[in-house]
Design a protein around this nucleic acid. Structure first.
Lengths: 242, 242
DNA sequence: CTCCTTATCTTTACATCGTAAAGATCAAAT
DNA sequence: ATTTGATCTTTACGATGTAAAGATAAGGAG
């Protein structure tokens, strides 16, 4: 009684037929559906499909549109299917964030490899950092804006750890010293924290549109990338008066 | 049919009697309630009361617990009352963010005033920035993490603008040059963007617990404040190898 | 090959949320 | 005194996260 969950929540009506990984492909259906239905009950690789669907929803509808039910809809399964694979929304967001961190790390690594001069090498990483965030603001939001992330999940922990390690390593290269695994000098820690804070803060402010004021008052046609470059390379004039 | 909105949503049962600003205090009630009820139909200053209730909810339950209905509950009014004063959730969050920015600006200003030496003066502002965020992480989240803010609201626009102006002004003082209203050199813009990015990024990473790794590997007992200080004062050794 | 177990996916249900719309109440102006 | 407009409540609806139970298929044991 009382028609809750109003109507076509499943959305399995007219979808592209999904491929089943199972070896017995296109097995006979037993359900009430007639001979036309090509959507098997078991998906075969739902987990990956859901993550890809989530990425699509995120790019299309932004962070606010990324819901469990929307992802299920996009993947063409029932709204409760994601729960089985990720536990809850936090689980899905965490796994998606892990995907994002891996993309993010790969983008920075390949950008660093492409550098030729020392100056390029020094700027390649932060530039790639900001470029990734600008190209995938939704992903960056999942990674750094959301509060619902579970870092006890191995995949997320590892991917985020790798990101940090890459940063620490880059700082070590620039300072021409080895960064130890278990101990840091204050100077080293400060250098790492400064680099990370600067780039992360810049990215956040940029994505939130809070740098528009500054960019608008700068010489005609100054891009965010140019501002970042100036930020990173300019001598610290009058940093402290004594 | 179908008992929606299950039960006691109003929560006006046993609350502390609210004071009415209206001049005709404790006027006779006409409703079905007997002579005991001291809750007038018109609150008198609901808008302010809602903002204070929101602040309380935010501190108690965090960003995730701050909902329109929770705020209404905390204020002891019906769940739809906030809508009349703020339009929607974005409106409430925006006005609350404006309150936060004003607190924030006041904290930084008073901290700067208390400084005596030049070095103190230079560090007072960023330290107060981080200290405010640590003391009011929920508020800071409303101001800088939420995507639902409407900067076209004058109160928010002004408060945020004042915050930026204070920053730009402080940078101008340090560089001993006047920061123009309508034009900036790249060097000036870079200095402002760097200062803001660094402190904002540091704060975000700190609140998100992402600096725990670094802090844990630093010499015993190094606080976040000490790390910030080192970050801001340390010479830029080997910033760029050429 | 058949039966049973288990993982996967669907259905159903429910509390909560934001929001809209209409009704109730009251202060103040006419 | 009546009306008007602002303030607050009631009622309602669609959407979401999540739990629980049912349906379906895959794989192993006999």
């Amino acid at each position: 009684m009382a028609k809750t969950d109003t109507k076509s929540e499943t959305a399995r009506s007219a979808r592209a037929p999904r491929k089943t990984i199972s070896n017995a492909a296109s097995r006979p259906r037993r359900g009430a559906a007639s001979a036309k239905s090509e959507t098997p009950y078991h998906h075969g690789a739902l987990r990956e499909a859901l993550l890809q669907a989530a990425e699509r929803v995120l790019e299309r509808d932004g962070l606010a549109g990324l819901t469990l039910r929307a992802v299920a809809r996009e993947a063409g399964v029932s709204h409760a299917a994601p729960t089985h694979h990720f536990g809850d929304l936090t689980g899905l967001l965490s796994e998606l964030a892990a995907v994002g961190f891996r993309q993010f790390n790969a983008a920075m690594a390949s950008s660093c490899d492409a550098a030729t001069t020392p100056l390029e090498a020094a700027l390649a990483r932060p530039k790639a950092y900001v470029a990734y965030a600008q190209a995938h603001p939704g992903m960056y939001g999942i990674m750094f804006r959301t509060e619902r992330l579970d870092y006890s999940r191995p995949s997320l922990h590892e991917a985020a750890e790798a990101s940090f390690a890459g940063l620490a390593n880059a700082i070590g290269m620039m300072r021409q010293e080895q960064i130890s695994e278990d101990a840091l000098t204050l100077s080293q820690g400060a250098a790492i924290a400064r680099a990370w804070s600067m780039v992360h803060g810049f990215t956040m402010l940029l994505l939130d549109g809070r740098l528009k004021d500054i960019l608008g008052r700068l010489p005609e046609g100054t891009t965010a990338e140019r501002l970042l470059e100036a930020m990173l390379t300019a001598p610290i004039t009058t940093k402290l008066p004594a």
